[in-house]
Amino acid sequence: MATETARPKRGRHRSPSGPAWVPYLYLLPHAVLFLVFIVYPIGFGLWVSLHRWNILSDVQRFVGLDFYLRLVTPGSPQFTFFWKTMGNTALFTVLSVPALIFSALGLALLLEKPIAGRSVFRAIFFLPTILAVSVMGLLWRWMFENRTGLVNILLDLVPFTQQFPFLTNVGWAWIPIVVGTIWWTVGFNMILYGAALAAIPRVYYEAAAIDGAGAWARFRHITWPQLNPVTLFALVTTTIGSFQLFGQSHVITAGGPLRTTQSVMMYITEEAFTNFQFSSAAAMSVLFGLLLLLVTGVQFRLTLRDLGRGVR
């Protein structure tokens, strides 16, 4: 870290930054907010999960690991719904992540070489990412609306296909959510891949061309391996994003039909803000957070590797 400056010499402070307390003064505003809104809530959340939080009471009863035990005891409603929605979320991740990686790579490859209107195309593919999830959700709910949605109108017009009630059909309700999500977020990974493609040294391709390598061979042996770090980064960040599914399901299907598209984030908020079971929800947050931490740990290491590489 911080290789750009020499390590401070203890006991002898240099005057350039003024009195010794000056740096701390700059750090103070952020540090106060950091303690109040990041450090404290972590402890407070754990504390809440170990008590039975009653919003109307001043004294909260200690219950130990009760709320965690429920989550691993088959039979309790919390167990049933937590793991059911966890499964839903995992299914969404499996459905969406590969699509978000490969379609992003496809778009980036289409835009790799100069072509008329390239920047316009890039802007169009990126455009949906700036929309709020509610906007995106309402658009795609309308697109997939049973009978009157544009998708069903088109299915009606195309021979050999017929209308289908996507939004209210178990399993099929994922299609509007996944399609909407791809439309909404593929632009991020496309930009990542675009930057990475541009950074591949041209000489590799020239050498391959001299060796007579075809398009597929060039992709397989140059492009794809060179993109490895970006693919890994995109894979990790997209997985984290997909696991936190909330808005798309909330707006497009409201978690239905029969909770089959309810994500774990939706269930946690339901437990907290509809059932007012804050302690139970806090315990779920901690458990779910720990699972996410396994993935963010990878991301963190990748970021640090970049950091170490880039800083002089």
Binding site: G45, Q244, I268, S285, G289
Partner: peptide, 12 residues
């Protein structure tokens, strides 16, 4: 590194 979900309930 800390997932946002950890903060939801305590912040609220």
């Amino acid at each position: 590194m800390i997932p946002g979900v950890i903060f939801l309930i305590p912040h609220y």
